[in-house]
Computed example of a mutant assay.
Amino acid sequence: MTRIVAGAAGGRRLRVPPGDTTRPTSDRVREALFSALEAAGAVDGARVLDLYAGSGALGLEAASRGAREVVLVEAARAAARTAGANAAALGLPGVRVEHERVERFLAGPRAGAAGGWDLVLLDPPYAVDEEALAGVLAALVPLLAEDAAVVVERSARSPEPRWPHGWPPARQRRYGETGVWTVHP
């Protein structure tokens, strides 16, 4: 069972997309991740972009904890429908779902947020290779707010993402088989 861990919708259950095309971030990992992000002041009032959103669990967790705007971007039709259903069921303000490939969304006009994105969450499928992920991270550079945080979740066996030139070193946390890298470009 996947649920919202804390905030206005804390404890509420989330549906997961049918089949095995997504791997929802565990409650334990989301709890640890968002505790650290909240301690850094990166969630409350933030504009959040959740790429490869799946069920929407990461972005909806941010909305539950006070993010003012959350955009869930998901290419898989069933997953985008599930994310939309979860967002509607929770009724949190400022959440919208974009059914589109991440690369296409980032290249389009809807990605250019006024003032930039404060928090970007990426949990790409294992099929997204390091080269493709590096391209997505590079596409984010002009779209970020000044004090943004970027979080990448991958298998703990994956190499550290290739960050865009000039970004500071990332902080890595490992939760069993899950690796989480956080950087403040």
Rank of each mutant, 00 (worst) to 15 (best):
L90M: 11
G84C: 04
V73N: 00
P125I: 08
R174W: 06
V152Q: 02
V70E: 06
S155A: 13
R154D: 06
R96L: 05
A107L: 09
W163N: 10
A170R: 06
L121Q: 00
G112Q: 12
P159R: 08
A83K: 11
V180Q: 01
V70R: 06
A67G: 06
A149F: 15
A139G: 05
R174C: 07
A139E: 05
L119Y: 14
E103C: 01
V120M: 02
R65C: 08
G91D: 07
S64D: 15
V180T: 02
R173N: 07
G66S: 11
G179E: 13
P109K: 06
A149T: 13
A132D: 13
G94H: 10
V70G: 04
V97A: 11
T178A: 12
G166I: 09
P109G: 03
Q172F: 05
P125Y: 13
A139C: 06
E177P: 07
L144K: 13
L144I: 14
R77V: 10
V73K: 00
E103R: 02
G135Q: 04
G56R: 03
L133T: 06
D129R: 11
W117I: 06
P124M: 14
A87E: 12
A127M: 06
P161E: 05
G84S: 10
G59H: 01
L144A: 14
A83H: 10
E74S: 11
V150G: 14
D129S: 09
A83W: 14
R81E: 14
R68N: 13
G56K: 07
V180W: 01
A132T: 14
E103A: 15
V180Y: 00
R104N: 09
V71N: 01
L72R: 04
A85P: 02
L72T: 04
R173H: 15
R101E: 11
A127E: 11
L72Q: 02
P159K: 04
V97R: 09
A88T: 15
W167M: 04
V151E: 00
P124S: 07
G91R: 03
A170C: 13
V97N: 12
P168R: 08
D123S: 06
E177T: 14
G166M: 11
P125V: 06
P124E: 12
A62Q: 02
A113K: 10
R171A: 12
R104H: 08
A145P: 07
A63W: 00
A62R: 01
G91C: 10
A89P: 01
